[in-house]
Structures are given as C-alpha cells and as structure tokens.
Amino acid sequence: MPTHQHIVRSLDEEQQRLLNEILRMGEMAASQLEAALDVVDRRDDQAAARIIGNDDAIDTMEHEISHDVMRLALRGPLARDLREILAALRIAADIERIGDYAANVAKRSMALNLAPPLPHTRGLHALGELAVQQVRDVLAAYRDNDADAAHRVRERDAELDAQYTGLFRELLTYMMEDARSITPCTHLLFMAKNIERIGDHATNIAENVWYRVHGEGILPPRDKRDETNTAG
C-alpha cells in the first residue's frame, strides 16, 4: 500500500538522520580529544578552556539524539529497527563519555602547565593518537554497519591497554626517582587513565555495532592488557 510505503520510507529517513547525527557527534568527540592532546603539547591554557567549554555541545547533542531515539521507538518499529534504536541510544551515551574524558584531559593540562615540561607527554600523545584512531575506526564501522570491522576495533583495545600500562609504570618509576615530579606525574596518570577509558568506550561502541548487525550473537572473550592494578 502507498501509505505503508510512505511510513517505511519515513522511518528509513529518520534512522538515516539519526545515524548522521551520531556520526557528527562522534567526530566532534574525536576532534575534542585531538585538540586536548594538542594543548598538552603546546601548554595552551586558553585553548584548553575552549575545549572544556565545547563539551556542552556534545552533551546537548546526546540529549537531542535521545529524544529522536524515543520518538522512533514510539512508532512501533520491527525487531530489527528496535536493535538499531537501542544501539543508537547506547552509542550516543558512549560518545558523550568520550567527550567528557577529552574535556578532562584538557582540564588536567592546565594544572600540568604549572610545572616544568615533562618528557612523558610524548607517551601520553602516542596513547591519545591510538585512542583517536579507535574512535574514528569504530564510527566508520557503525556508518558501514560492518560487524567485522567493529570486532577488529574491539580486538585492538588490548594494544591500547598495553601502551597505557607501559606509560603508567614509566610514570611511577619517575615519581619514585624524583619527588618533585610527583604532582605533574599524578596529573599525567589521570590523563592517561582518561584516554584508556576512551578506548573502553570505543570498545563498547564496537560491541553495539556487532549487536546492531547480529542481535544477541555471542562475542568471543576480549584480551585485556591493563595491568596497572598489579603494576609494581
């Protein structure tokens, strides 16, 4: 029936609009993290303050997307569409947290600037670049509805965990050798943890892309290499 076709087309258009909004929100969060890493390198308090302020825009987008998702849910979609809607809601929440962690990195950079520069910011930058790539790759998997690509992102989280553990141990050693470095190294530890958590949220998104494609299909156990709880 023409009316039925119109409803289906309208629903498809709404879902495409929702996908585009989530992708735009995700790119904003990835760009925020890149900018935060840049201000750490440049020791730029004003730019850091702008990044912190920009986090509100990501929060606002998440609220708008949540409303759009609820409006779609109320239209009585099919089971496949419900998976799409639930995945969208979860992914938007993960992106919002990624934006929060990027803002936290910028906030800590302002405190870090009160101390002389540390060489370990290079390790932080490398960790951050890995996290940015994870976020961008998982957004591409979501855009393409590619469960295999999402699974590869999920597997690569172990590499980010291992790099985080290495930086964590390096900072602890430095703190033990030079008591004056304790305060700035503590800020770097918190920043590194924020970035490691961004990797975890990219993994959550990957799992929701898998769910969107396969439903409740069982994913294999994930290799976790964050050994900071046992680091000595």
Rank of each mutant, 00 (worst) to 15 (best):
L189F: 01
W210H: 13
T203G: 02
T165M: 05
V213Q: 06
A162S: 13
E177D: 15
V209P: 08
L160V: 13
F190I: 00
L160W: 02
V213C: 02
N194S: 13
T173K: 06
A179L: 12
T186Q: 07
R143Q: 15
A141H: 07
A202K: 11
H201K: 13
A206R: 04
I182K: 02
L189N: 02
Q163A: 15
C185S: 15
N208M: 13
D178K: 03
R180F: 02
V138I: 11
N194R: 06
N194D: 12
M191P: 05
A158I: 00
W210P: 00
T183N: 07
D157A: 10
Y211T: 00
Q163K: 12
G166H: 12
C185M: 04
G166F: 03
F168T: 00
I195E: 09
E196V: 04
R143D: 14
T183M: 04
Y174G: 11
Y164L: 05
G166T: 10
G166E: 15
E207W: 07
L189K: 01
T173Q: 07
R152V: 08
A150H: 05
E207K: 06
F190W: 15
R143V: 05
R212P: 01
E207A: 05
M176N: 08
F168L: 02
G199H: 06
D157L: 08
I198Q: 05
V213W: 00
M176I: 08
D148Y: 10
I205N: 05
V153P: 03
R169E: 15
R197G: 03
V209R: 04
A162V: 01
H187R: 11
R169Q: 13
A162W: 12
R152E: 14
F190K: 03
D157G: 10
V209A: 03
G166Q: 14
N145G: 13
M176T: 11
T173P: 02
L167R: 01
G199V: 09
D161I: 04
L167A: 04
A206P: 00
G215D: 02
G215R: 04
R152W: 07
F168R: 01
V138K: 09
N145L: 12
D178R: 11
A206W: 04
N204E: 09
G166P: 02
A149N: 10
T183R: 12
H201A: 05
M191N: 03
A158L: 07
T203H: 08
R143L: 08
R156K: 14
M176A: 13
R156C: 05
E207M: 06
A149V: 09
T186N: 11
H151F: 12
H187K: 06
W210E: 10
K193I: 03
E170F: 03
A149C: 08
N204T: 02
A158G: 09
H151W: 11
E196N: 03
R152A: 14
R169L: 10
E207N: 05
L171R: 01
D157P: 13
L160D: 08
R169W: 02
R143K: 15
A206Y: 04
R212T: 01
V209S: 08
K193H: 14
R197E: 05
N145Y: 12
A147V: 10
E170R: 12
E155F: 02
E207T: 02
T203Y: 09
T183L: 07
N204H: 12
D144Y: 11
H214M: 08
H214E: 06
T203M: 08
A202V: 07
R169P: 00
Y174H: 12
V153E: 12
R152C: 11
H151I: 04
R154W: 15
